[in-house]
Each structure stands twice: as C-alpha cells, then as structure tokens.
Design a protein around this nucleic acid. Sequence first.
RNA 1: GGGGGUGUAGCUCAGUUGGUUAGAGCGAUCGCCUGUCACGCGAUAGGUCGAGGGUUCGAGUCCCUUCACUCCCGCCA
Length: 595
Amino acid sequence: MSKKYRTHNCNELRREDLNNDVLLSGWINKKRDHGNILFIDLRDNYGITQCIIDKDNLNFKKLEKTQLETVVSIEGKVIKRSKETINNEIDTGEIEVAIKNFRILGSCKELPLPVFSDQEYSEDIRLKYRFLDLRRKKIHENIILRSKVISFIRNEMAELGFLEFQTPILTSSSPEGARDFLVPSRLNPGKFYALPQAPQQFKQLIMVSGFDKYFQIAPCFRDEDARADRSPGEFYQLDLEMSFVEQEDVFDVVEKLLVSTFKKFSEKKLLFNKFPKVTYKDAMLKYGSDKPDLRNPLIINDITEIFFRDDVYFEIFKKLVKSGSMVRCIVTKNTRDKPRSFFDNIDKWAKEQGASGLAYFTFEKDKTLSGKGPVGKFFSPESLEEIMKLTGAEIGDSIFLACSKKTELEKITSLARDKIARDLELIDERVFAFCWVVDYPMFEKDELTNKIEFSHNPFSMPQGESDKINFDKPLDILAYQYDIVCNGIELSSGAIRNHIPELMYKLFSIAGYTKNDVDEKFSGMINALSYGAPPHGGIAPGIDRIVMLLANEKNIREVTMFPMNQNAQDLLMNAPSEVSDKQLKELNINLKIKK
RNA sequence: GGGGGUGUAGCUCAGUUGGUUAGAGCGAUCGCCUGUCACGCGAUAGGUCGAGGGUUCGAGUCCCUUCACUCCCGCCA
C-alpha cells in the first residue's frame, strides 16, 4: 500500500467499497472484546468505522491490550455486515473492516476523563485536558459549527461588498468603557499599550480613509469578570462599519446577514423575518430591560395612578407611591384556576430576589367585580375596572404587583416576567425572536455621583438637527444608537457615529471633558474627523453569542476552543504565569504584591 | 469586592439520626467468552472523604477557618 496513514477517513467506507483493501487511521473510540473476536470502533474527525479481528490473527493479543484513545493505523479489507448486525446509527454501519495488520502511531496513558461518554465533567478537568475534552462529540461539533458560521459570515459579507481588514492588537488605553488589558512598552519606559476593547476608533478611521464598507472577525479584550455567557478577557465580534448610511441602511445589512445565518445553521424558526423595533424607553417600561425576550408574551404595565385613588385601600403601596415609588404589574391570562401554591411560589421567589415580594390577586365577577387573593380586598370594583382598562386584563386573569423606585422596579419586574412565563411555560424554545432596541439616550445620570455620563458610546450621533438640539436638557437627547437582541440575549450594539468635531466637543463637555481632554484622549479620532469625514455608522454582533444561540448552549465555554476559567486562568497553558526578573527589568517593572 | 451551589476512588456519583472495616457504575489490571455496537461474566488493585482546626467516647456526616471550581450581583462605553 503506497499511502502511509490512510486511504479513507473513518466516515467514508460504504457497500461500494466491499472487498477493497484499505488503510484507516484514528483513535480507538471503543473496544468490545469477546475473547475470540474483538470489535474496535475507530474514530477520526469525520466519523466512526467498526473494525474487527479474531484470535487467529497474530495481532489479536496486542490489539486487545491497546488502550482506548490510542492512535492507530489499521490495514484491512472492507467486508459486509450480515443483515442483523448492520448499525444504522453510523454512516459506515453497513460495512466493517477486517483487520489484517495495525500500527500504533501515538500511545495513550490512562485517561483522566473518558472521551466516549455523554457524562458531564467538572470544568477544571475539562479545561486542563481540553485536547481530550475537544475529542468528545458534542463540543467537537460545536467548534466545527463555529468555524462554519464564521466562514459563512465572511462569504456573505464579501457578497455584500464589505472589505476585511485587520486592525492593531497593541493600541492605546482609552478612558471610557471597560477595564483595559495593559502591555508594558520596553522601548518607551513607563508607558503602556492597551489591547483593544473593540476596534472602534480604527474602523471609523477606515471610513475616513475612504474604504466605504469594512468588516472584521475582530478579537476584543476587556478585563472584566466572567459570566456564563461572557469569557473573561477575550471574545470575538463581527465588527462592521459603513459610510454614507443612516440607521436603516445598517439594519438592512445586519438583518439580511443574521436571517440567512440563523436559517442556515439552525432548525429553529425565526419569529420575525423583519426585526421589530422597540424604543429603549418602551423596552424599560414593557419588559423592564433593554434586552427583552420577545418570545415571552407577558407585558409589564405601569398602574401607579391607581394608588392615588380614594377607593383603593392598599396602604403600604399608597404610602410608598406618595414618597416617589411606582407600581408596575404583570397580568397573566386565565390563571384563576391555578393553585394557591403557584402564586405563593412566585411571591416567595421574589423575596429571594431581594424584593419585598409580589402582591397578587385574580379578577373575579359574581354580581360585582372583585379581587380574589390576599390583597384583592383593598380594591373597589371601580378601581378594578380601571386596572382592567389600563392593563387589558379580563375576568379570570391574575395580576402581580410590585412597588419600588424606578431602577429597582425595572429589575424585579423584568425578572418576574421571565419567572412567571417559565412557570406558565409561555416561552417557545423552538424559535428565535430578534428585535432592535433603538433610541437610546445619549447621556445618563450616575445614581451615586449624580454626574452626567455617556450612557453608551461617546462617538454616537445625537438625534435631531445639530443646531436644534437642546443641550440644556442633556438627559432628553436621544442617540442614533441601537442594539440587537435575540431571545433576551444582547447580541450587539452599534450606532451612527458623530463625525462632526464641534458637535463632539460639545457632547464631551456635557460629560465633563474639556476640549483639551478630548484632543488628548482621542487625538487620532478627532484629528481625522477634521479632514473630511464621511457620515458613517456600524455595529458589532458578538460571534460567540451567535454560535451559542445556534448550538443551543448556555455557556460560552461550550463554543470556545480554549477558554479560560472564571478566574481568567488558562489551565492548559498555565496562563497567566510569573516571568523572569530579566524580563521585568527590561520593562522597568517592579512588583509590589500585597500579601 | 459581595452572595449562592459544589468538593468522597482516575471519572460520574451514593453514603440515613454522628456509630463497626466508606460503597456503586464506568475506567485500570488479570482471567473467561466468536457478532458486539453503552457487549456479557468473574476477580483484583485503587481513598489525606479539598485542606486546617474544633466539638465528641466516636466526625465523610456537626461547628469554625481556608482553598478550588461554578452560578449570580457589582463590573462589562
């Protein structure tokens, strides 16, 4: 045989190959030893082929003793399986390979974790032996999916006329945003590079440089704490930017791209092909969150006004409302027959979340309208009528009420909306519900310091003609700033950028930056905008989260090849690690570690 | 920085009210078995019960401290 390692991969052989001599290479996935006959499942990236040997073969004893996950090449003849022994679960299930000879290409020690198993394993072992973990079927397929999704997106973007460019990894620290990863400069003692949190300024410079449409599968680095859907340190964005566009032009491109990607790579249906738009203000009121899960049909309503009525006797809420709290509610359809435990569980759950609980009652009508449940008695029939008008509730529906200050109220009603919908099984897990969240405010007030700050991206364009914007009421200024949300997960945010230097200075001054500050911190940007900048805008969908949705995974490590753990350590490569005194000296760094 | 969960054999887990020598499945080693595909059967080895301290006649189990992993809050323009 002329080939050294293989004539076929482990997912290739079919009935047509019967009686051919073949050479396969792969890992021993599983052995089934019958004493006088031995079955070997040989696995590679492509699939599994069953190989068989009997005791008359001189290699029998040796193969019988070979460990699982040993890499071997097997020489043999393709033979037919009898009808009863065909395995329909693998593509090569109609044939098997009668082993003539075999060779060990890579031996294997006793395994710290089994590869052939659907069991779940602790993260630290999986990450330490990631190369074994990645052999396992599910995660192996997730990583392949990720590759295919990225290739597909690249092709689509090229189709749509975008050019792919690389931007620097060593760049400068910026004052806004997340904590930077810093890299000391040897040639410039005492100075540091920062890894980019996103190629934000570079992509704008690319537009100013006249390239019109840019994209990149861009690594982004932010030194913040991890979550299940957030890697510590690094993640990838489909970063894109376009010149001479308005918000709608960006929306068209991204919708086209996401619709085709999600249709291609998932069985799940898209609830909307044209993504609905929700204003930030509406999102916060109706869903309590700027990343609403639109699969969830429940809506939050504000009924604060009810608690000013004289025929409402719910004194705790009335007192809180007088001191500036608000009351918001969630109505559930036709839940009059739900057991008491259903309601009490939700109330108990709310208390666990740190809220004072959720009051509830059910709308009933005998002769007159009444509220059934612990707090129902505090409402007159007329006030109940009014609540029904405000919320669209009907007889037989129930209502959950929360009373608090705005931010806290949004938080608890948002959580409650999700909790109640899950308890009632109202969320359809078989769909993707995309939406745009639009009209973000340009500024917000820090609740602790009372300072005005940029609420999102300081480079966003404020809405309205620049000479008509009322800068005296900065909190009322909206921005051409938008997010894409899918099933309650924030996929990306973007904006039409502010390309007018004077307007930029003005907005920065509201956030407390002088002209000098801006010139210094964003010199590259502001300088470039002064030499003929086109109007432009873009967005940056998160690749990891897109793949998570497509792979139906809740944890980002399931779609990341070599992730770090929650403490930002790479257990396989032992990063971060100490470095030599020589290295530190070259960088003019002294360590002062608190013990 | 704060809160919750978990930690027992190489791996996944059980372990009752504090009570004799800490168990099971998979894996490993040895033996038997010619049609399995999670093959089957028998035997053997394998344990600092995360670590340290305390209570007790006696601690895997109760208490305190601490470490690791994980989930959440803060943070993430």
